[in-house]
Amino acid sequence: MATRRHVLAGLLASSLPRLSWADAGSPTFVAAARDATNAFALHGLSAEGAPLFAIPLPARGHAAAAHPLRPEVVAFARRPGAYALVIGCASGTVLARLTPPEGRQFNGHGAFSQDGSRLYTSEVVAETSEGRVGLWDTRGYLRIGEFASGGIGPHELRRLPGSELLVVANGGIRTDPEDRSKLNLDAMRPNLSYLAPEGELLEQVELEPEYAQNSIRHLALAEDGTVAFAMQWEGDPADPVPLLGLHRRGSPARLCPPAETEAYAMKGYAGSIAIDAAGERLALTSPRGSVVQLFAGDGTPLATHPRQDACGVAAAAGGGFIVTDGGGAVSHLTDAGMRPLQTTAAAWDNHLVRIA
């Protein structure tokens, strides 16, 4: 039953002016980075990659989830992490600090419900790497439950466009909770799991046995329901394997190899993935290979562009992609190639998150 204090707090909150993303400078992207003093921060960037704000983080960040209505971002620690900070981007303050339950670890990613009332977090049971999805009520960022992710070692999770269904990239790797050494490379079973908002497993897709060591890590979603996924190969490095896959519910997954001459360019490691607004282009980055590969929306390879330590990628407002790298550059990628936009002192981390 609501207490008088809770009622008064609710009335006060409803009477306050509601902040919007315009109050935070109307950022198009957010990304974590390390500066020249080795301090970490969450940055807001304009559509052209210009810096708008920088809010300190206690340690290295990984990805973030942007609230669909309020100028709030949940910044996740580099996996496996023990913090997730709710940051008010208009005020530049930490509004809440989320801590996983005992024996759990955050795994670097999260997603909001359509109305922003819930936050879903990617987590593992530390001792076994069994996947969990944490549920949080965003009115006070209180934990209200959890459910199984559908596999081992979940990484990115996303909400399907126009629905409340979740898709989870279960990477399939069991790791040591102390040193992150990989314990089950001979028995990996990565999968995509589609989950109802209360946790019911609706559909699950595994890779063919020959690709069982291709860990599914990151996701990009098209408006028509296509899920593009990026992988990291844990098998023999002499074996070139596709690192891009496509899936539609009710169909088998389809892997999309690059051009034969570029089979080794990414060195078995895709760091991030994005799809453009029209659903006509996909970008796959590899900081290990220092390249960005472009594909058509159907998975046809188009080009490979060199970019040192490139990893963050997101759809650009006017077409193409924005790419960030560990050297501080922000670039615009199109079919014509890579065009520098900004040079900063920030060593950009793994992901560039588009604010919808």
Rank of each mutant, 00 (worst) to 15 (best):
E208V: 11
L255P: 00
V74P: 00
E156I: 02
H351W: 10
A345D: 15
L333D: 01
L243R: 02
M338Q: 11
D186S: 14
A277H: 15
G235K: 03
Q232Y: 05
H351D: 10
E223Q: 14
L8S: 09
L12M: 11
A187G: 05
L207K: 02
A75N: 07
R78A: 00
M1S: 14
P177W: 10
E156S: 03
E260F: 06
G116P: 03
V94T: 14
I55M: 05
A356K: 15
R281K: 13
T343V: 09
C89M: 13
P252H: 11
Y269D: 02
T99E: 14
L243T: 01
K182H: 06
L119N: 07
N170Y: 02
A9K: 14
I144H: 04
P257I: 12
P27S: 08
R118E: 09
S181A: 14
W136R: 03
T285M: 04
P68I: 10
G153S: 07
A230F: 01
L219T: 04
M338V: 15
S15H: 07
P100V: 06
P161E: 04
I87M: 10
A265C: 08
A228W: 08
R139E: 12
S15V: 07
A169F: 04
A356H: 15
L11P: 01
G318Y: 05
F295R: 05
V241Y: 02
G140V: 08
